[in-house]
C-alpha cells in the first residue's frame, strides 16, 4: 500500500498528489510514468510522473478526473492509501541520454491541458542542467492552464494560449507556435508536444510544414505497462511500436494519430457504465 502524503486541487477537475513510493522516486526520470491500481477491484491506469523527490521518497502525479478511476481517485485524500503503483515505466526522454548533442539546440515545449504535468519535469531537468527552454501552455480556458507558476521558475519563457482568451493569447497552441515562429521570428530545433492526441496531431502537422523535428508523448490504453500484453501498440512510421516499452515518446512526424485516436475509444461504452458507478459510489459515501 502506498500513502498519499499530499493532495492539492489545481483546478476544478485537475488535482496533484504526492505518493510515498521510495523505490520509484529513487529511479524516476523525466518522460516516465507509473501505473496505478487504486483498490482490490480497480483497473490499472497509467499516469505520468510530474515530479519526484528522491530524499522524501515521493512521486507527484497530476490527474484530470475524466472517468471511473480518475474520479474515484479525486475522492481520495491525504493519508489514504493506493493499493498498487508500479514504475517508473517507459523510457526517459531522449534528451537525457543525448544531452551532450542537445546542449546548443533550441527546444520549444508545447503543453496542452493536463499535458503540463509531463512537460514540467522535463523543463525542470533541462533547467537544472543549465538549459532554459520556451514553453507554450494551452488550455480551453484559464482554469485549465495548470502549473504556470512552477513552469515559469524553470523555463526561459512561458507563453499561454486559451481557446476563449480568458488567459494569455486567444487561440490554440498552434496559433501560438505560428506567432512565435512567424511573427517573433524565433527559431527552434526541436518541439516536444504533450497533450491530447488531437493537439499533438495538429502540432505535428504544423511543425512538419515548418521543418522542426517533433517529439510527442503517446497515451494509448495500457494494461501491464511492462511489455507483455500489447495493448499499447501504436503505429509509428508503418511499424508497430509499444508505447509502454518503446515509448511513450515518439517522432511526431511518423505517428499515425488517426489510428491512435480511434483505438483510444475502444472501451468508450463500458467506460460510461463505470463512470456512472463511480458517481453512484460517491453519493453512497455521502
Amino acid at each position: 500500500m502506498y500513502r498519499i502524503v499530499k493532495k492539492k486541487q489545481l483546478s476544478e477537475k485537475i488535482f496533484l498528489m504526492n505518493i510515498e513510493a521510495p523505490r520509484i522516486a529513487k529511479s524516476a526520470l523525466p518522460g516516465q510514468f507509473v501505473i496505478i491500481k487504486l483498490h482490490e477491484k480497480g483497473e490499472r491506469i497509467p499516469l505520468t510522473i510530474a515530479d519526484y523527490d528522491r530524499e522524501e521518497g515521493t512521486v507527484s502525479i497530476v490527474v484530470q478526473a475524466v472517468g471511473g478511476s480518475t474520479q474515484r481517485m479525486e475522492t481520495m485524500n491525504e493519508g489514504d492509501h493506493i493499493m498498487d503503483i508500479a514504475g517508473p515505466l517507459g523510457k526517459p526522454s531522449d534528451f537525457i541520454e543525448e544531452f551532450e548533442e542537445m546542449k546548443d539546440k533550441k527546444i520549444l515545449f508545447v503543453a496542452g491541458g493536463v499535458g503540463s504535468a509531463p512537460v514540467y519535469p522535463q523543463v525542470k531537468w533541462l533547467h537544472e542542467h543549465g538549459m532554459d527552454t520556451d514553453v507554450i501552455i494551452g488550455g480551453r480556458s484559464a482554469d485549465l492552464v495548470i502549473l504556470k507558476e512552477e513552469m515559469s521558475k524553470v523555463a526561459n519563457e512561458v507563453y499561454v494560449a486559451t481557446d476563449d482568451g480568458s488567459l494569455g493569447m486567444k487561440g490554440r497552441v498552434t496559433d501560438m507556435i505560428d506567432h512565435l515562429v512567424k511573427v517573433e521570428g524565433k527559431k527552434y530545433d526541436l518541439v516536444i508536444a504533450i497533450g491530447p492526441l488531437i493537439m499533438m496531431k495538429f502540432v505535428a502537422l504544423q511543425t512538419k510544414e515548418l521543418g522542426i523535428s517533433t517529439v510527442v508523448s503517446m497515451n494509448p490504453i495500457m494494461v501491464d505497462g511492462t511489455g507483455m500484453c500489447g495493448a499499447c501498440r501504436v503505429t509509428v512510421g508503418d511499424k508497430i511500436k509499444f508505447a509502454c516499452v518503446d515509448g511513450p515518446e515518439f517522432d511526431g512526424h511518423l505517428v499515425d494519430f488517426d489510428e491512435a485516436m480511434r483505438r483510444s475509444t475502444t472501451y468508450k461504452e463500458k467506460e460510461k457504465l463505470q463512470q456512472f458507478k463511480a458517481e453512484e459510489c460517491q453519493c453512497h459515501r455521502g
Binding site: M228, C229, R233, I240, D256, E259, R262, R263, T266
Partner: peptide
C-alpha cells in the same frame, strides 16, 4: 511482447493479442 501478423487491419478496434 506478443507477435502480430503485420497484415492490413490489425490496427482496427477489436483486434487484441
Amino acid at each position: 511482447l506478443p507477435k502480430f501478423l503485420g497484415i492490413e487491419g490489425e490496427g482496427l478496434n477489436g483486434v487484441f493479442s
